[in-house]
Design a protein around this nucleic acid. Sequence first.
DNA 1: TCAAAAGTGTTATCACTACACCCATGG
DNA 2: CCATGGGTGTAGTGATAACACTTTTGA
Lengths: 234, 234
Amino acid sequence: MKYSNQTRILVAVDCIIFGFDGSEYKLLLIQRGFAPEKEKWSLMGGFVQPKESLDMAAERVLNQLTGLHNVYLEQLQAFSSPERDPIERVIAVAYVALIDINKYQKQINDDFHARWFPMKSLPKLIFDHNDMVETALQKLRYKAAFHPILFELLPEKFTLPQLQTLYEGLYDTKIDKRNFTKKVLSTKILNRQDEKDKSSSKKGAYYYSIDEVAYKDNFQNFLNFIPKNDLLLL
Amino acid sequence: MKYSNQTRILVAVDCIIFGFDGSEYKLLLIQRGFAPEKEKWSLMGGFVQPKESLDMAAERVLNQLTGLHNVYLEQLQAFSSPERDPIERVIAVAYVALIDINKYQKQINDDFHARWFPMKSLPKLIFDHNDMVETALQKLRYKAAFHPILFELLPEKFTLPQLQTLYEGLYDTKIDKRNFTKKVLSTKILNRQDEKDKSSSKKGAYYYSIDEVAYKDNFQNFLNFIPKNDLLLL
DNA sequence: TCAAAAGTGTTATCACTACACCCATGG
DNA sequence: CCATGGGTGTAGTGATAACACTTTTGA
């Protein structure tokens, strides 16, 4: 039995994949391999299959491109303008992924001609993908202010200066080093390692890792890193 | 031209319609008029038509039920489990609406047998509608802490005690009257009227209305009313 | 030995919390 | 005249913001 006299619609997922290379935010894009807009830059996407949920579809698509499993992946919102795809109506549900840029190996899937673009110089994307990216960035700014999600962009061990650059990059602002350290460490979310990273200074910066227990306890109740003056909320 | 070899899927919108009657939060539900689950309580919903966006579909559905236009209406998220509807696969995009409960006139559309239920005693709903409501409530708690959206539940003129009850109801907490007044008035979002509401006290409480300009300026940057101890974030 | 980045503490200001009495009025 | 709900101020505490010097070490 089916619902009668109703129009069925193509549904796709599109993944906005953010990375951070130590100094700036990047977005993973592909060169679309089929018409329309063949060869144009695009978000990685795919049609939802009959027996999969949107979450499953997004995971599948993300895995196809990056080879990664268990990455941070969250539904953003549905984009549904009837004319957004010129070929046929497609409702797209956008997903945001945060990945450690170093885990992405170019050779994993080169069919898509994927490339990381700096957020500050994105190409024009097909359809409404630029809007999706803009919406995703706003949501990331909003959410990261209160939830410790930016750690997803870093390797397991990272230094405080790296973390600070991450926050400063997202809000395009400068944070006082002493205040930043105090705030972050007060959450008890970080464990200092004995080891130091000497790649960017002679003295070396201590590595930290996430304390999984404290992380979960604090997830709903993290610090506000948004500079008071220019809150950019969703 | 069409995309070939892809499955098209039914897409619906479902509206989570919140109201506030002066002392408690309510949800507007309908008695479903068709199979499956005929006569069971349900969110108001409808299938997306070929030439309408999801936003348009949600507005249409909301208007059909309430007769209202220009109400606060926001996309919540898509629910997409392949088995959520036993008849046929349907991807549902949930929308949250906040309406002034007094503007809803029962007679506007009685075809749906709509009824306001107190949030504290909701019936079992069809499909995954209870999950949608729970998700919507969490998001409302989260968003209302930082954005002045609860005003949408009140008439144009309202008193501070009413507003306080609204916040206390949402977070199920007691707020000190003096601190609450101070916080709200410090936003400059409210204009005091000369008129008083004497319906609930002999002295009468001043009516306030929204200062549209200050409202827009402050929308992104409102106060945090979540009690520090039990932040319930999304 | 020095350049470059990492690490650390104190003070002032602001926001939040706790708390109690007077006011206005209809009955 | 009094019971009921409405309105208001202050002091203490905790969080945030501003600010500069010392440490380490590879080149």
